[in-house]
Write a protein that binds this DNA or RNA. Structure first.
Length: 153
RNA sequence: CUGGCGCGCUGGGCAGCCGCGGGACGCUCGUCGUCUCGAGGAAAGUCCGGACAUCACAGGGCAGGGUGGUCGGGAGACCGACCCGGGGAAACCCGCGGGAAAGUGCCACAGAAAUACACCGCCGAUGGCGCUUCGCGCACAGGCAAGGUUGAAAAGGUGCGGUAAGAGCGCACCGGCGUCGUGGUGACACGGCGGCCAGGUAAACCCCACCCGAUGCAAGACCGAGCAGAGCCGCUCGUAGGCGGCCCGCCGAGGCUCAGGUAGGUCGCAAAGAUGGAUGGUUGCCUCCGACAGAAUCCGGCUUACAGGCGCGCUACCACC
């Protein structure tokens, strides 16, 4: 019995969002904000001690396989720079839109990082930036927030 | 040299800093260290084939589908050489590929007629009629398919002979067909002879020869929560069981086993090898870095896309030296 547990635990990459169920939870129950190039969904989990997890979504609308790989790599580099700013225990999904290709061609990683930072600052406002009392705020806030976002988008 | 033609290679490099995935080794066992490997010629389209896997399957046939010049290789729808048709001065390039005398269908419009005809015509030798006598006239019987008309195409073409007019009826050459000979493994080529009877379409049905079981790594194999199911033990007589091994003490209504197999995991899976999916970011220099494009079970082939650069071979009409 111990063998599969350690094997699974060692394989799990930290800071990555996996499982389509996790994605669905972020989309359905999280809040979102978007710009011209990216959309960010955020969902605070209960266990706040875990490091934040980030998932990337780059659809075929963005471009062919080479283009999509490029966008994902630049996004990963940018996220690595901004990781310290992320609230612990939160899941977020970053979706690239078609205009992100132009941004990358013009400014590269620096432009992507700048846009992403702007979006994440907005999310940190409603995440409270306060990991001390996450359980109380999260139980009430997400339900209404989800409705607002769905109406907007 | 220049122009033309064919083939092959390459598909940014170097340096600094910061990163990512796999593997091996090491230890102070971790958010560790060292070493090492880490996208393509097409990774693409998924058009073929093979391996592998599960299911089906005595043998044979039908249906359905695929392939189609020859020879050699091969698992092949692939490759090489050759044959055939066309282009070029040449190197070379492009194209097609069993069978249309087994049968059926179709061939619009036009045209008299589309494998079959007689509209306009020609003749009227022979027979008939009239005049009349070795002949002439009529165009009734009949003969003809040369000429005209239509068309992409009218049952070989041109010429001479021949005839009443004509006709491969005869002859010469050409074309096609058959046959014989020679050369070639063969497709086929060349030559002799024969008689003239035969349109196209098979990516229309069809006929002939050969080949083909189905599904595809989300194949498939193993482990396996939870829920429900079956069996056994136990249910206040504080028992079964639990509190890390034992005793006391406490808690106590459930506990254990089973096959099946969901979520999930492992394997399949690799000298790149993931399973939200690594192979990157940034700075500087190289006068410029810029094409098409990102592995997902593996291996062949085909097809398609492609900036720039490099090399080799062949050819010589015209122009230049």
């Amino acid at each position: 019995m111990p063998a599969p547990r350690t094997g699974a635990g060692a394989r799990r990459k930290r800071g990555r969002l996996s499982r389509s169920g996790d994605f669905d939870r972020v989309y359905r129950q999280g809040r979102s904000t978007g710009g011209r190039e990216f959309v960010v969904h955020v969902f605070p989990r209960e266990a706040s001690l875990d490091p934040p997890r980030v998932g990337l979504s780059v659809s075929k609308k963005v471009g062919d396989a080479v283009t999509r790989n490029r966008i994902k790599r630049v996004l990963r580099e940018a996220v690595a720079e901004l990781e310290a700013d992320l609230a612990a225990g939160s899941d977020l999904v970053i979706t690239a839109r078609a205009d992100s290709v132009d941004l990358d061609e013009r400014e590269g990683k620096a432009g992507v990082e700048r846009e992403l930072r702007a979006l994440l600052q907005r999310t940190s406002a409603w995440a409270g930036g306060d990991p001390a009392a996450p359980g109380a705020t999260q139980s009430t806030a997400p339900a209404t927030a989800t409705d607002d976002e769905q109406a907007d988008g």
